[in-house]
């Protein structure tokens, strides 16, 4: 057997490629030029406002930022820790809630009702109110001798609220798996629970991963709200530094750090979504 000759692009194709390269180069130049012009206009408008000097001093003071850095950074580490634990908690609780909501049969009515009630209540209630209720209500019950750390209570509140949202995402994913898959699983003799665990959930999770990542990004910034319970996270640290320096720069610093924390997650979400699309849509991209 002789190997087929390697494809040599024809003169016609080479011409097309040259044309496309020229077009790409032109587009990049136009984009770069317009970006520079736009940035310049915004910058000049900003620095020529009458109050710019005062705002710059109050919000963008490098020396204040440098002094606030250690404390704010320490706070951010706490945010990160809370985020990791909350994300793990949300994953477990939301899958349980979503599974309960898909149970059929009259026997399971109480479980279904509890799950539905839970998602209704916690999707409706503002996070900050849940934080207050959990943060000051649970210690009031006196389960423990000492008040649990604010960060722990904050994590519980975040898990309660976000599980309600994420369980609905999972439920949508479970219902998006074609019924014929359940039929095939049950026809093999798998029980309802086994079909769920081995066949339905793995497919559901794949379908909703981009949406889940989006909720994770939303949660990572809401983690900053645990400061209302007194946990010294990045926001609370910035507040303390702001009060000490009579300058708002620490808030800006904390805000920027949150954005930096979110960026990898956002990029990861974009990458994953694009990969899914590529895999499922081989061929024409319109």
């Amino acid at each position: 057997m002789t190997a087929p000759a390697p494809a040599v692009p024809s003169e016609l194709e080479l011409g097309r490629r040259r044309y496309r390269r020229r077009q790409t180069a032109r587009s990049v130049l136009v984009a770069a030029a317009s970006t520079v012009v736009f940035a310049l206009v915004v910058w000049l408008t900003l620095v020529n406002t009458p109050g710019w000097a005062a705002v710059q001093g109050t919000f963008f003071d490098p020396s204040v930022a440098a002094r606030a850095w250690p404390r704010v950074f320490q706070g951010l580490l706490l945010n990160l820790t809370v985020l990791v634990f909350a994300a793990a908690g949300v994953l477990v609780v939301s899958i349980v809630i979503a599974t309960l909501r898909t149970l059929r049969g009259p026997v399971f009515f109480p479980l279904r009702a509890i799950a539905a009630g839970y998602t209704d209540v916690f999707r409706g209630m503002p996070l900050i109110i849940v934080l207050y209720l959990v943060g000051f209500g649970i210690p009031g019950l006196g389960f423990t001798d000492e008040r649990p750390p604010a960060a722990v209570l904050g994590t519980v509140a975040l898990v309660l609220v976000y599980s309600a949202y994420v369980s609905e995402v999972f439920r949508a994913g479970i219902e998006a798996v074609h019924p014929s898959q359940r039929l095939a699983a049950r026809s093999l003799g798998l029980s309802h629970a086994q079909s769920m665990r081995l066949v339905i959930l793995p497919q559901a999770v794949r379908k909703v991963t981009p949406a889940l990542m989006n909720d994770l990004v939303a949660m990572q910034k809401d983690v900053g709200l645990i400061s209302v319970l007194g946990a010294v996270d990045a926001v609370r640290a910035a507040q303390i530094e702001t009060a000490a320096a009579f300058n708002f720069t620490p808030y800006v610093l904390a805000g920027l750090l949150f954005v930096l924390l979110a960026l990898p997650l956002i990029r990861l979400t974009d990458w994953y979504t694009a990969r899914m699309r590529r895999r499922e849509q081989m061929g024409a991209v319109v």
Binding site: S180, Q181, A185, R186, S187, G189, S191
Partner: peptide, 19 residues
């Protein structure tokens, strides 16, 4: 479930598990 395990079924649209 044990009864279904004694019966094999093949569907028109295969219904293989894609994952």
């Amino acid at each position: 479930d044990p009864v279904r395990a004694r019966i094999g079924v093949v569907f028109q649209h295969f219904n293989l598990f894609p994952h």
